[in-house]
Design a protein around this nucleic acid. Structure first.
Lengths: 354, 354
DNA sequence: TTGTACGCGTTATCAG
DNA sequence: CTGATAACGCGTACAA
């Protein structure tokens, strides 16, 4: 018993393909009896329209694609992405769409895009003018990017990373910290350079340091300059970076560019027997769910991952429907003060006398 | 400038559609010069084959579907599912496939299946003989289920839930606990009854209680019988269930059927100022990543979520390739002893004298 | 109310 | 060896 097609129903019922199709998709256009007869035969033969042929005909797939910069098994280590997916998912469901996760195929993003049978794409951290953008355009696919650089003719959803980074660094400085280590996303020497988000956050950290008058402090030794460590976006990355920090000598505060990094560092510090925030302050960026679960709870920047996903998906749906949409959607981010940051011990001890 | 099709290239180059297609897909079948000319024109016009038409023709979609029992935005609250997706993703990447998340469309699983343009489906907790199974079969889609009931003619990937549940309950009993509250997944009165996994775990808990001679203990009051609370699979569900437990009077141990439930309960207990494991023992089931992050670290059953996803995807790939595969894949689960369980205080106080 | 023909890329089959 | 024709699957504009 092989696949049953619309042709079989047509032959069996004596009507044409068109009539059979109308029986399912536009009942008003055929007679009631005709329809009943066709439906009966279709049921008997177990006919189900082939969605692929149907999609080809309708020129809509009923699915949108999320282009993953990394392999799925790796990408999901970052819970921030889960939040984004949830936001996208909320819109998909409402619109009756499914969500296709597109990893690099044979290590190539372009291959993934080439074969994507989707109505549109959501991408992460896409930079205008890149080969990737050009290829998506060539495929005439509507697309939106999250955490990307503004400037292309496609919508970008994000926060003001620079301002948010300055916010958390200023908080640490206000607590009195001067010996600070930064754990940054990415690596110092990378083919494609830092992403927009990475450089914005770094710039924000520097804004805060500058505003605090650090450069004018003539007495500072080179050791006082914030040291920057690079790590890939995972707890393991944070752990490794913290290893290096421990080797180089502990600062009074660690400012991590993402929560997973901070969590990895905290794990490493706990093993070393260093108390947080007593002996060292740790702050993050993202506010993933785990950050409220660890003890001490992590002070961090709350990023609206869910909202980013939601807005991106909504903008994409508008593009798919050929409607206009904003080119730049900026969402709010705020400092969430919890328990992992405190004044440095030295200040607390000597600063009491003023 | 509209979409460029293979026909445009054929017209522009003077060759037929066939020849153009061969230029891309089977260069050996046409002349070198012919191919060069076609490729040049295709490049000029910015031609990209339409993946949808291509997939229709090839009868393969290059994507597998994950049928979600719940809306995406809800399903992702359970990190256990993220682990499964990671496992599936690892196989997808290796095989050059993407992964389509299919939520219920218009609240209907069947609608989601009807429109799924995929090579095969992975489902969760599917029961043989249900309408869902019948519909997937009608579509002639190969499929596999994770955490489902064995008995249909499709592969099932899971663990021995009953044995694993008995393991953790026995551990709690061995610590000396007799006043136990169980937080179960699902609800007491539900249309479709408990899932296979739910009833297996409950059965496992009861096995352990029985083996421990509880039923023969004539002195036990009704209050000593384990009380069962039902909750939906989220931290909020665990919190709410724990609210009820607090109201009803605290037992010495809470056995939760999943880690998210346990985590929710722990959060509630922390607010109430009840110390874990000093005043109460809490254990879970799943071993999601967060369970190692909370303090105290959660004692639980380690479920190989990633491995489940991986095995399910591998079995599905075999089915898609028309190869044979095992009908039942049982993976290992083990008790992970951490810090959230300890002997009950009364025992610790009085038991010293023996 | 119903049928014909077309769109989309691939490939078995046929013609030169 | 090189290249063309036709069929696959569905929906629908258009014709009858």
């Amino acid at each position: 018993m092989n696949r049953v097609t619309i042709k079989d129903i047509a032959r069996e019922s004596g009507y044409s393909k068109t009539t059979v199709s109308f029986a399912f998709n536009d009942p008003s256009r055929i007679g009631k009896d005709t329809r009943a007869k066709i439906l009966r035969i279709a049921e008997e033969l177990g006919y189900v329209p082939d969605p692929v042929a149907r999609n080809l005909s309708l020129r809509r797939q009923g699915t949108i694609g999320l282009l993953l910069p990394e392999v799925i098994s790796f990408a999901f280590f970052n819970p921030y992405l889960s939040q984004i997916i949830q936001g996208i998912g909320a819109v998909c469901e409402r619109e009756g769409h499914s969500l296709t996760l597109i990893p690099p195929i044979r290590e190539s993003l372009l291959e993934g895009i080439r074969g994507a049978a989707v109505d549109g794409l959501i991408t992460i951290g896409l930079e205008p003018g890149t080969e990737t953008v050009e290829f998506i355009k060539r495929r005439h696919l509507p697309f939106v990017t999250i955490d990307g650089r503004v400037g292309g003719d496609f919508p970008v959803v994000g926060i003001d990373d620079r301002r948010a980074a300055a916010l958390v660094m200023r908080y640490v400085l206000d607590l009195g910290h001067r010996e600070i280590a930064i754990i940054s996303l990415g690596s110092e020497s990378r083919d494609d350079g830092p992403t927009h988000v990475e450089s914005q956050r770094l710039a924000g950290y520097r804004d805060a340091l500058r505003d605090h008058g650090a450069p004018r402090d003539r007495d500072r030794t080179p050791a006082d300059q914030p040291r920057i460590y690079y790590a890939c976006a995972s707890m393991a990355g944070g752990r490794d970076a913290c290893d290096q920090i421990v080797q180089d000598g502990l600062p009074t505060a660690i400012v991590a560019m993402s929560d997973v990094l901070a969590l990895g560092a905290m794990e490493r510090l706990e093993i070393a027997g260093v108390t947080i925030p007593g002996e060292i302050t740790v702050v993050g960026f993202d506010d993933i769910r785990e950050s409220r679960l660890v003890r001490p709870q992590l002070t961090t920047i709350s990023q609206p991952g869910f909202e980013k996903g939601r807005h991106a998906a909504e903008a994409l749906m508008r593009l798919i429907a050929d409607e206009d949409t904003e080119r730049h959607i900026v969402l709010d981010a705020e400092l969430v003060i919890r328990d992992s940051a405190a004044p440095p011990r030295v200040i607390a001890a000597t600063g009491g006398g003023r």
